[in-house]
Simulated scan of single mutants.
Amino acid sequence: MFNLSHPKLVTLAASEGYADVADFLEDHAQGSTVPAICMAPDCDHTADLEPDQRAGFCEVCGRPTMKSGLVIAGMI
């Protein structure tokens, strides 16, 4: 079961111009890089990273907290 309601996933999809998280995931499910978001509570920085990224470096807050939208949703 996928988690389409995680607040960071909703924020990530909206920042990419999607009103529906499912459409965002469908469009990015096969990409070699996908949108990712910082999971720190006080940071919403986004970047394109590897689809399986779970602890990427955030260029804004400096923490290893970047996570792929596909990972957040539970697709990977």
Rank of each mutant, 00 (worst) to 15 (best):
C38L: 00
E59Q: 15
T46Y: 15
T11P: 01
L25P: 09
D44S: 07
V60T: 11
G31C: 04
I37F: 00
P35H: 10
S32C: 06
L12E: 02
A73F: 02
K67E: 14
V71F: 03
G74M: 11
C58F: 14
V21T: 05
A40V: 07
I72N: 08
E26A: 07
E16R: 11
S15W: 14
H28N: 09
K67R: 15
A40F: 14
D27M: 03
A19P: 00
N3T: 15
V21K: 03
I37Q: 00
A19R: 06
T33K: 03
C38A: 00
S68Q: 10
D48S: 10
D44K: 13
S68Y: 01
Q30T: 05
P51K: 01
A13C: 09
V21Y: 04
A19S: 01
C58T: 13
G74A: 07
I72D: 01
E50F: 02
C38F: 00
M1F: 05
I37N: 00
C43K: 01
V60L: 10
Q53K: 14
A40S: 15
M66D: 06
L12F: 02
F24G: 06
P41H: 09
H6A: 05
S32F: 12
E59P: 10
S68H: 03
I76Q: 10
A29I: 05
V34I: 03
F57I: 11
P64Y: 01
L49T: 15
A14Q: 08
E16M: 10
I72L: 07
I76W: 11
F24R: 01
V10Y: 07
A29Y: 03
G31E: 03
E59K: 14
F24W: 03
L70W: 00
A36E: 07
L4S: 07
A47Y: 08
K8G: 05
Q53F: 13
K67I: 14
A19L: 09
A13L: 03
D23S: 13
P51V: 07
G69W: 08
E26R: 08
A19N: 02
T11Q: 11
I76L: 12
D44Y: 14
G74P: 09
I72T: 06
T65M: 12
V21G: 01
G62L: 10
V71R: 05
K67F: 13
D52R: 09
K8R: 14
A40G: 05
F24M: 01
H45T: 09
A29T: 08
D27T: 08
D48V: 14
A14G: 04
C61D: 13
A29F: 11
L49W: 15
G62W: 12
A55F: 15
A13M: 07
T65K: 09
H6C: 08
G69P: 09
L4G: 02
D23K: 07
V21I: 03
T11M: 04
H45R: 06
N3C: 12
G69L: 09
G74E: 13
M39S: 12
H45W: 11
C61W: 11
D27N: 03
G17M: 08
S32V: 07
K67A: 15
G31I: 00
S32H: 10
D52Q: 05
S32Y: 06
R63C: 04
E59H: 15
C43G: 01
P64T: 00
L25W: 13
L9W: 08
